[in-house]
């Protein structure tokens, strides 16, 4: 009796049954088959003709609809997606974007920053010295400026 109650408890809890319990359950189902006959004998009610007519109308509408080419649509949409993805990848790879970077790579590579800075200044000054704008400016200043340091001598005046 206790085993039977345990089995019922397991059945209600939908727990896993042992091999013996499964065999016992099969036997119980066999012995209760007359209940199955009662259920089998329940009458089946036929739907009325109005119901059937409504169903036929709905089905005929569906039958007249052309079949959707689901496979074709799937294929076409797949091609479009792959094409769009390829285009996007190509445009990313082949587009040249401006590169922002510092230009003092020489200084950065140098081990002595001060020496490089000094060299850069000297070179810049030399470049200014040899430039035409500076030379003209010097010539111009020599021609126009008079400091008064050179005075005329008496002999110079007499020779005039």
């Amino acid at each position: 009796m206790k085993e039977e109650q345990n089995l019922i408890t397991k059945l209600k809890g939908e727990m896993a049954l042992s091999a013996e319990e499964s065999t016992e359950l099969d036997a119980l189902l066999d012995s209760s088959s007359s209940i199955g006959n009662v259920i089998r004998d329940l009458p089946h009610e036929e739907p009325n003709l109005v119901w059937r007519s409504q169903l036929n109308e709905k089905l005929s509408v569906l039958a007249e609809k052309p079949k959707r080419r689901i496979g074709l649509w799937k294929w076409a949409s797949g091609v479009v997606v792959v094409g769009a993805a390829s285009l996007a990848v190509w445009s990313v790879v082949n587009t040249r974007t401006p590169v922002i970077a510092t230009t003092n790579t020489t200084i950065a590579d140098s081990t002595n920053f001060e020496d490089q800075l000094m060299q850069s200044h000297v070179e810049s000054a030399a470049a200014m010295d040899v430039s035409s704008a500076y030379a003209l400016d010097v010539v111009s200043s020599k021609e126009t400026s008079y400091t008064g340091e050179e005075e005329w001598s008496t002999s110079d005046l007499e020779s005039l």
Binding site: K10, L11, K12, E14, A16, L17, S22, L25, D26, L28, L29, S32, I35, G36, V38, I39
Partner: peptide, 19 residues
Amino acid sequence: VGTVKSRLFLARAHMKAHI
């Protein structure tokens, strides 16, 4: 399948109780 059998037995027991 085991659950189907369990439920079937319980359903029949329920039906039997009413009858």
